[in-house]
Write a protein that binds this DNA or RNA. Structure first.
Lengths: 133, 133
DNA sequence: CCGTATCCTCGGTGATACTG
DNA sequence: CAGTATCACCGAGGATACGG
């Protein structure tokens, strides 16, 4: 029996559906999926340093993010309701971002994780260095 | 002026060095980098459900991870000192994994995050659904 | 049973150029 | 200033086959 491209597409979409179901049911999968992109947590942390920040300010705080990824990340956070975005119809344009209450509420558990990392980072790095085979 | 392949390799390695420095200095980058792979947190959570687990048991708990990625993830966690691995020289072979004290210590801050996710997941999903443009 | 070895795909990311 | 549009790339991860 042969597998056609159409079959593959069906399989792919089924796989995606299964994946969505798993993530929908399993809260852990869900947070991991949200968290595990390269920039989101960093942007949230940056925004927590100031009440309001313009696009350029955020970019200055995270110099090595590309303009594209900063936009993509901010939009994604806005979609989730973690960040609000206010456009001022001026010339030149001004856009201000700030954490929503929901966004701020994430800071508490996040701090727990950061503190854990601060306390154990060196041990972990040492362990990694000495790990053989 | 032309950019040769050799030049590119130099640029790449410099970029990687810069990246390493940033991650070395900035603890937040460091945790994000450690956390943001697809399976680590899930494996840690799974291992927290039982004191000791065999390779096959873990695989049954996370059916959609490939054998390869389960091995890779377990080795990476072992390297960081979060998981211990004990091989029994039997036929057929038996290998047992368990969280180390360091591994268990991650569970507390992790629970904070999971609880936050449980409390806010629906709001976020609703927000994402209604997000236009 | 518990892996390792290959090969390959695909999507996230960066670089660059352009617009209102 | 704050984006979009386009293209090219790498590397995490999957599929498969084999090994002790």
């Amino acid at each position: 029996m042969e597998i056609t491209i159409a079959d593959k597409e069906v399989l792919m979409s089924e796989e995606k559906i299964v994946n969505d179901i798993i993530e929908g049911i399993c809260p852990i999968r869900n947070i991991i999926a949200s968290i595990s992109d390269k920039w989101s947590l960093l942007v949230i942390y940056t925004l927590s340093q100031n009440p309001k920040m313009r696009f350029g300010e955020i970019h200055k705080s995270i110099p090595d993010i590309s303009q594209r990824m900063l936009t993509v990340t901010l939009r994604s956070l806005e979609a989730g309701g973690l960040v609000s975005r206010q456009v001022f119809p001026e010339v030149p344009p001004r856009v201000e971002y700030q954490l929503t209450d929901l966004g701020y509420s994430l800071l508490d558990p996040l701090r727990g994780l950061v503190n854990w990392a601060l306390n154990n980072m060196e041990v972990i790095q040492e362990s990694r260095k000495n790990y053989q085979q």
